[in-house]
């Protein structure tokens, strides 16, 4: 400790030179690019929109996840913003009805870039159990979603886990899916494809483009 302080003093005085100075700089300075630093700062100071739709709101960011047991302040996102113009994360916590969908889209459009969206629970991810006339079958039909958290409703821990995934994504280092991790390409299920289950031409094209992006990143 003492010797480090002495060396720092020497450096400030300009006494260090040559190889010694270079080693000093290498040891003490983290080199990174500006984007990474920005991502690091952004991901740890997210302002979520205090926005609750249904069941998941009681378990999610508006309520349970901010309270003492789960405490989202550990991840720097406890400051909920009531106005979409101040928020950069919207969490769709609950089922999206046909009456609410245009309003959610409007809230999302009002948020300033950069902005992210988490779809919490089965309902907003896929319509969940409510496959009927009143519920939009998945919020991805009208807005982009970054992270889907499964569950009905997800536990607060699951929301926080999804939240950390989003942080990785913001830092420009998104977690890959299980297919990438286990090298399981080619096992994808295609809802609408050719007669033997192969993907349709445009689906395959979109998939290859997406994969190219991931591999190049």
């Amino acid at each position: 400790m003492r010797s480090r302080q002495l060396r720092a003093r020497d450096m400030l005085r300009g006494d260090l030179e040559g190889e010694e100075l270079e080693r000093y700089v290498e040891e003490r300075v983290v080199m990174t690019n500006f984007d990474k630093m920005l991502g690091w700062a952004r991901s740890n100071s997210i302002f979520p929109l205090t926005f609750g739709l249904a069941c998941c709101a009681i378990e999610g960011i508006p309520m349970a996840a901010v309270t003492a047991r789960y405490d989202i302040a550990r991840f720097g996102a406890e400051a909920g913003r009531a106005s979409p113009r101040q928020a950069d994360l919207i969490i769709l916590s609950g089922r999206v009805s046909i009456k609410m969908a245009p309003i959610i889209r409007r809230l999302y459009d009002q948020m300033l870039e950069p902005k992210w969206a988490i779809s919490m629970g089965a309902c907003s991810s896929s319509g969940g159990m409510f496959s009927n006339y009143a519920v939009v079958q998945g919020a991805e039909k009208f807005m982009p979603i970054d992270v889907h958290v499964p569950g009905c409703p997800p536990r607060p821990e699951a929301v926080l886990y999804g939240f950390t995934k989003l942080q990785r994504k913001i830092q420009g280092n998104p977690d890959q899916g299980w297919r990438a991790r286990y090298g399981a390409h080619g096992t994808e299920e295609w809802a609408r494809g050719g007669p033997r289950g192969e993907p349709s031409a445009e689906a395959a094209k979109a998939y290859l483009a997406a994969r190219e992006l991931i591999v190049s990143a």
Binding site: L53, A54, C55, I58, G94, R95, S97, K99, M100, I103, M129, F130, S131, N132, Y133, A134, V135
Partner: peptide, 30 residues
Amino acid sequence: IGYVHTGIEKSCEDKSYWKVIPFVERMDYV
């Protein structure tokens, strides 16, 4: 009102009695 209208009553008509229980739970979620 109606911004979280989920059509649960309609969905219940499509499910057998024991499958209705999880649907009705999600009405008043507290």
